[in-house]
Amino acid sequence: MNILFKVAGKLRYWYWQISARMLARVHGVVLGRGCKFYGMPIFSIAKDSKIIIGDRVVFCSDSRFTALGVNHPVILRTLQPGAVLMIGDDCGLSGTSICSAKYVSIGKRALLGANVSIFDTDFHAKASDNRRYCKDSAKIAVKPVEISDDVFIGANSIIAKGVSIAANSIVGAGAVVVRDIAQSKIYAGNPAKEVGNVE
């Protein structure tokens, strides 16, 4: 019986590696070398936009392969023409949602804990008139998000539009980040505030 489970596990693993790469190619995602998939991610790319993924990035979309489990698969999505979503080499994503209407950049070796959400847009217009159905991008606030190398973002955190997180910083689990974070700082809470330094 153990042999059957091992064989099934290997078949599932290789199915994910092949299928996820094909899915990325079909959607026009630029995928680096040596990326690994545990479960199937969701890719969605707007016309004339780009998703660029570096080498050896690990995508965990299946709760069996991460300690906390994930609420949903990894979701990478561009929302408007010209949008860019970039992920650097050696990053790890577990059930992460990233939406780029203009520009979202994740540096090298970033770790994004279970169910982190990152977005550079408010998704809806500020004015209440027709807010739900408004598709006019000029009425929807958008500001780029930049996350530098070696950043660790704890589970269930939210990184909102316009935020820059400098290298080697840590965001505590469940934090809501609405302002920039300086290098080697630890932020936590809602809204996130500085609580320490990375030694």
Rank of each mutant, 00 (worst) to 15 (best):
K10C: 11
C60D: 13
M86K: 15
K108S: 14
K135M: 11
A20L: 11
I53D: 10
E194A: 14
A182R: 07
L68M: 11
G54C: 05
V198L: 00
L76I: 10
R21G: 12
K102V: 13
G162W: 04
C134I: 09
T121P: 01
D122V: 02
A83I: 00
P81W: 09
V198S: 06
S184V: 07
K185C: 14
I170R: 14
C35F: 06
C60W: 08
Y133R: 08
S157N: 05
I186A: 12
H72S: 13
M1E: 08
I158H: 03
L31M: 09
Y15G: 01
V142Q: 11
G174R: 03
S164R: 15
L4A: 14
L85M: 08
Y13S: 06
H124R: 02
D136T: 05
S184P: 11
F123L: 04
M40K: 12
I98R: 03
D62S: 11
S184C: 10
I186T: 13
V116C: 04
L11P: 03
H27E: 09
F5Q: 14
N130G: 01
R77S: 02
T96C: 12
V104H: 05
Q80R: 11
I140H: 04
A188K: 07
C99D: 10
V151T: 06
N71T: 07
P191Q: 05
V171R: 03
N2D: 13
G162R: 04
D90A: 02
K50G: 05
N71H: 12
V198Y: 08
P41H: 03
A167H: 08
E199M: 05
A173I: 13
I98W: 08
C35G: 09
G113E: 06
R64I: 01
M40A: 12
P191K: 12
V171I: 15
V151M: 08
T78I: 00
G95T: 07
G196V: 11
L11S: 06
M1F: 13
F59C: 01
V26Y: 15
L23P: 01
I75Q: 12
V151K: 07
S63G: 15
L93H: 07
K50L: 14
Q80L: 10
I170K: 10
Q17D: 13
I181R: 04
S105D: 07
H72Y: 09
T66L: 06
G107V: 04
N115S: 14
S164G: 08
D180A: 02
A67E: 11
R109W: 07
A141T: 12
G39S: 01
I158D: 06
I45V: 15
F152P: 00
I153T: 05
K161C: 07
K161I: 01
T78E: 01
A155I: 00
I181E: 03
F37Y: 11
V145T: 03
G172I: 03
I165F: 05
G154R: 10
I53P: 14
N156E: 13
G174L: 12
V145R: 04
V7P: 07
K36S: 14
